[in-house]
Write a protein that binds this DNA or RNA. Structure first.
Lengths: 138, 138
DNA sequence: CCACGAGTTGACAATCGTTCTCAATTGATC
DNA sequence: GATCAATTGAGAACGATTGTCAACTCGTGG
């Protein structure tokens, strides 16, 4: 970077607070489990807050990039979303009933980063999900 | 189950050793990283062992069920397959070129099991994939 | 050697989730 | 109110995967 004047401060384009954007965010706040984009789109329709499906996808993507929602893939490849708490974490999911527990693993974070580093990989990200059968489902 | 005579021994229908089946298995043996069904289909074509795309998918599914290949989902939801070695391990995958490194993490194994246990989850399994950009792709 | 039948295959249609296109709309700013 | 870029929505386009179904094939018994 030169010094004189450059380095544009807004690295990301401004986001406009539209009705649709607000509706999606509110919808995400209204449930605590993972939902597919289509389900969210339908939910909005029922609420009378109709938002185009494409817009739902777009918004969900933005939210995911911004780290405001978690994205997961079901076993058959469908993306499912859920609002996430502020910190990076993983999920312990019951195979039978879907009950989810958020877990943190600083050790794991460190481990993945160092392993990747050792092999010369940069820009590291990872996916970790734990599956099991919860007490109630045994 | 009653005791007298029942419990049919063959729970799974017999599999026939066809040219196609063999070709797919051989193809899987010929590389060590993850490939999509389509790539495998194409590879077969180049080898002159043409196998219908649908058949490739079907065979890959069977192999996966039988635990003979690992299935993973790329970040955009595509299924990728690879013959799997005997030991449980994870993968460090290059986002750009797909280069894969097998990594083991006894610590992670222990961690997931104990976390799950703490929350009363049994029959624990987990998925952990690390993504990054390898040195050659930077 | 041949007929037989269930398992298998392949070309193609059909799904399904997701992304793209583009004209019309909207929000912030002047 | 005029302006302009960001945004939206309807629908087309896409790409991966699965379903359909007639033709084929392997192993078996005759």
């Amino acid at each position: 970077m030169t010094s004189t004047d450059a380095s544009p401060p807004p690295p990301n384009p401004p986001l406009r607070p539209t009705r649709q954007r607000r509706a999606v965010v509110e919808a995400m706040a209204s449930f605590a489990d993972f939902r597919s984009a289509q389900e969210i789109h339908e939910l909005l329709g029922q609420r009378g807050e109709a938002v185009g499906l494409a817009t739902v996808y777009r918004t969900l993507q933005r939210l995911a990039e911004a780290g405001e929602v978690d994205v997961l893939r079901t076993e058959d490849g469908e993306a499912i979303y859920r609002r996430c708490s502020d910190t990076h974490h993983h999920h312990l999911v019951c195979r039978a009933c879907g009950a989810t527990v958020e877990v943190e693993g600083p050790a794991v974070e460190r481990w993945t980063r160092s392993i990747a580093g050792e092999h010369g990989y940069a820009d590291v990200s990872h996916t970790l999900e734990i599956f099991g059968t919860c007490a109630a489902c045994r």
